[in-house]
Design a protein around this nucleic acid. Structure first.
Length: 823
RNA sequence: GCCGGUGUGGCGGAAUGGCAGACGCGCCUGACUCAAAAUCAGGUGGGCCUUAGGCCCGUGGGGGUUCAACUCCCUCCACCGGCACCA
């Protein structure tokens, strides 16, 4: 009986059997409640490392646990195979994106199998498959019909290193989301999705997402950036031009001392007619262009140029100078502002730099602001002054009154403004969904008819390290106009890969449908996703886009729900020596660890290392500890098969032995702890609890086979196998089988505990004097308060500490402690 | 600058306002062994004393609430992450 725990043998064995039995196939018609568990799918980079494994291990444990809890679980996997990350990985390895991608997918499938993840592979989705992107194109056409997809000539974010346009979300902070390099502006004609039409719903519905991390909701809310204000226009002296501005501080309108336009604002060209002035404007624009964002922000004084025209403040008829300055952004609001240096810090700094007047129109209570001595703008509340008929009003009130006043006079209107801008979806890349559009000389922009889908990416092109090769592919570009039949040209931009990942969650519910992207019936049955698991880096990008898509699909009547993800979990990064783990840094590869310690050890260690939401530091010694634990579990169950009594359940009630009772107590306490810990996602303490049970079992040694203990020991063995199932599925399965079970442990029911058995017989009661621990008493649980008090007071140790003091108060917490307050 | 997170032994980390440090790593001692590995048993926050025992200190710093604070409140510090001229 010198058989020992050998993960290299049992893991492949069970993986093979699970696949053979289709154990993880999702039944479609099933009366059990559904649970859709999903991890953000990976892009096939070819470099799977341990950091990623954390994501998949958490998901698998959650999926397995829900199955055992009686849910019909949908737990699929697929590959985000299109797009720049996948293409870049291919190019880096000097391969055609298609060849490379499918090779990687094959490798990763093997890796997932070796990890023991319980995916339903029958539902696999690969986004670069024409059968998938066909529906991506179909959905694009639906967006087009709805007026939600449009082409526009506009300055767009451009990453010179990737030779690639970026959406605003991808260019956060002026840095490319892939290469981290600086982003510039380029003028180009591109396809956009009208996500701004959904800004209000995307913001408002965040409130429903109570099971999302607060910070993700905050990040999205900030990104959408709603602000309520007033839009009105300044007349220009000696011209019929008007300068529209947006402000959230209409209460400060009487404090305007100048107006600023963004340097690129198209109005500037109409306002400036004089040749000399024009040259200055051009020079200034060139200067601004040359500076990076960082340079602009780090400048001491705010730069700007005064134009030779003036504007009229509609509130008081005053004439004020007009500037262009780069602190005003073209893309936000109207691209022009009213400047109130007394009450806006940026305007204050600009006014100082350019010697402009500062006029206080809001006086804070109990203070008299003097423009000559102010060293910063007064942003806060106060009472209106220098504001005509509004003087004396609290500014919060004036805000309403002034808005009404301007609206009545037809000068302005209340408006809600968003920071969110439309979503740029064109990519100048080969490896993506071809946009199903044809340009015809006579008919213009013509959508490809649905019956002609998919527009297939030409497979036999030579790959290129940079830029797109599609425009050079004549066989692809040259086509006939679907309307008039004349020769025409295909769109050569492809779609951002975010689009495929907006609805893959739906395709999983109906992956083989060739009539539709998915059936509404399947979608409504499974969605929303009950548990979504992924990295925080997608807090704005993927999660915002998916939410937008879901709302559009709802409006199209394709689905019956408006939010895709009920619960979101963002796990922490797995670090090595304080930095993100990666192969290039000599990080450990999952396959190496599996070869050395087994997948179960890897999984259990990842769950044990820290609470999953936190960052965690990989330590080689840690996994050895887990290996040891699994070994001990093996020896405790498989190594003592002689002690196991299959019929323990029927006979155990008669057990009266103290040691047996103690073991039973441990078993039931462990079931309780593991269950509660998994429920609150504290997998690390769940593993600790199982370790304690195994330690208790091991301590018994050979006594396990004694008649008095056998039954309790059998109960412990059986439950240990069940509790291990979500963490170490192969070991659990092997032990379960050795205990004589024919059916998989993963089809078994999660065990229940009995509070009466788990109940401690004796409780250690802490006795404190003035809050300091002075003695411990052993009492029965549920001992009455007054008994606890008198026992505590009777203790000789306590007596000693009470010497010369008088008791003020005695606090008794039943089953916990007695605290005697004495002076 | 703004917003969020984190701060506990040598290390990863535990603790519904009620015994701080569960569990694991590492380390120390012992058993087994010719020896080592593996395994098993015991110990392991710091300081102090008259050392069967006992006392004091201790959860980033300071203050507060409370009989009682890692936990709640205020304030400061450090590190990590996000946003950053958004009118």
């Amino acid at each position: 009986m010198e058989e020992h725990y050998n993960p290299q043998e049992i893991e492949p064995k069970w993986q093979f059997r699970w696949a053979e039995q289709q154990l993880y196939r999702t039944p479609e018609d099933d009366s059990r409640p559904k649970f859709y568990c999903l991890e953000m799918f990976p892009y096939p980079s070819g470099d799977v490392h341990v950091g990623h494994v954390r994501n998949y291990t958490i998901g698998d444990a959650v999926a397995r646990w829900h199955r055992m809890r009686g849910y019909n679980v949908l737990y699929p996997m697929g590959f985000d195979a299109f797009g720049q990350p996948a293409e870049a990985a291919a190019v880096r390895h000097n391969a055609h994106p298609a060849t490379w991608t499918y090779q990687c997918i094959e490798r990763m499938r093997g890796q997932f199998r070796r990890l023991g993840n319980s995916y339903d592979w029958d539902r696999e989705v690969v986004t670069c498959d024409p059968e998938y992107y066909r529906w991506n194109q179909w959905l694009f056409l639906k967006f087009l019909e709805q007026g939600l997809a449009y082409r526009s000539h506009a300055p767009v974010n451009w990453c010179p290193k990737c030779e690639f346009v970026l959406s605003d979300e991808e260019a956060q902070g002026g840095k490319c989301w892939r290469c981290d390099g600086p982003v510039t502006k380029e003028d180009r004609e591109q396809w956009f999705f009208k996500i701004t039409d959904y800004a209000d719903r995307l913001l408002g519905d965040l409130q429903q997402l109570e099971h999302w991390p607060e910070r993700v909701r905050t990040m999205q809310a900030n990104w959408i950036g709603r602000s309520d204000g007033v839009e009105f226009a300044f007349d220009v002296v000696g011209s019929d031009q008007k300068i529209p501005v947006f402000t959230t501080r209409i209460d400060t309108i009487f404090g305007v001392t100048y107006v600023v336009l963004a340097p690129e604002h198209e109005l500037v060209d109409r306002l400036v007619t004089d040749g000399e002035m024009r040259r200055k404007v051009e020079a200034y624009r060139a200067e601004v262009d040359a500076k990076t964002n960082v340079e602009r922000l780090s400048e001491e004084a705010k730069a700007g140029l005064r134009l030779d025209v003036e504007a009229i403040n509609p509130a008081n008829g005053e004439q004020v100078p007009i500037f262009i300055a780069d602190y005003v952004l073209l893309g936000y609001g109207t691209g022009a502002i009213m400047a109130v240096p007394a009450h806006d810090q940026r305007d204050f700094e600009f006014a100082h730099a350019h010697g402009l007047p500062i006029r206080v129109v809001i006086q804070p209570e109990g203070e008299a602001l003097d423009p000559a001595t102010m060293d910063s703008a007064h942003i806060g509340e106060g009472v209106q002054v220098n504001s005509g008929q509004f003087d004396g009003l609290p500014n919060t009130e004036a805000q309403v009154k002034l808005a009404e006043w301007l609206e009545e006079r037809g000068v302005g209107r209340r408006r809600i403004n968003y920071r969110l801008r439309d979503w740029l979806v064109s990519r100048q890349r080969y490896w993506g969904t071809p946009i199903p559009i044809i340009y015809c000389e006579t008919c213009g922009t013509v959508p490809v008819p649905e019956s002609d889908l998919p527009v297939v990416l030409p497979p036999d092109l030579p790959y290129a390290a940079t830029g797109s090769i599609l425009p050079q592919a004549e066989s692809f570009v040259k086509t006939a106009c679907p309307r008039c039949g004349a020769s025409a040209r295909r769109e050569t931009d492809t779609l951002a890969q975010w689009i495929e990942s907006c609805w893959y969650i739906l395709r999983y519910t109906d992956p083989k449908n060739n009539e539709m992207p998915f059936s509404r019936e399947a979608a409504d049955r499974w969605l929303p996703v009950d548990q979504y698991i992924g990295g925080i880096e997608h807090a704005v990008l993927h999660l915002l886009y998916s939410r937008f898509f879901t709302k559009v699909l709802y409006d199209l009547g394709l689905i019956g729900f408006q939010e895709p993800f009920t619960r979101l979990f963002t796990h922490g990064m797995l670090l090595q020596d304080g930095a993100a783990m990666s192969k290039s840094r000599g990080g450990v590869a999952p396959d190496d660890i599996i070869a050395r310690h087994g997948a179960d050890a890897l999984r259990t260690y990842i769950l044990f290392i820290a609470p999953p939401g936190q960052e965690a530091d990989w330590q080689e010694g840690g996994i050895e500890g887990i290996s040891r634990f699994l070994n001990r579990a093996w020896r405790a169950v498989a190594g003592r098969a002689d002690a196991f009594a299959p019929d323990w359940r029927g006979r155990i009630a008669d057990t009266s032995d103290d040691t047996a009772a103690a073991l039973r107590r441990s078993t039931h306490q462990t079931i309780r702890r593991v269950t509660n810990d998994i429920e609150r996602w504290h997998f690390n303490t769940a593993v600790s609890a199982m370790m304690e049970l195994v330690n208790a079992m091991t301590e018994l040694g050979d006594r396990a086979s004694e008649p008095d203990l056998r039954l309790a020991y059998s109960e412990a063995c059986e439950h240990l196998a069940l509790l291990l199932a979500p963490f170490a599925p192969h070991l659990a399965e092997e032990l379960w089988a050795r205990l004589g079970n024919r059916e998989s442990v993963h089809l078994a029911e999660w065990p229940a505990w009995d509070d009466a058995i788990a109940q401690e017989e004796q409780i250690t009661l802490v006795v404190q004097v003035n809050g300091k621990l002075r003695d411990r008493l052993t009492v029965a649980p549920g001992t009455a308060e007054h008994d606890l008090e008198s026992q505590a007071l009777a203790s000789p140790r306590i007596q000693a500490h009470l010497e010369g003091k008088s008791i003020q108060k005695v606090i008794v917490v039943p089953d916990r402690l007695v605290n005697i307050v004495a002076r």
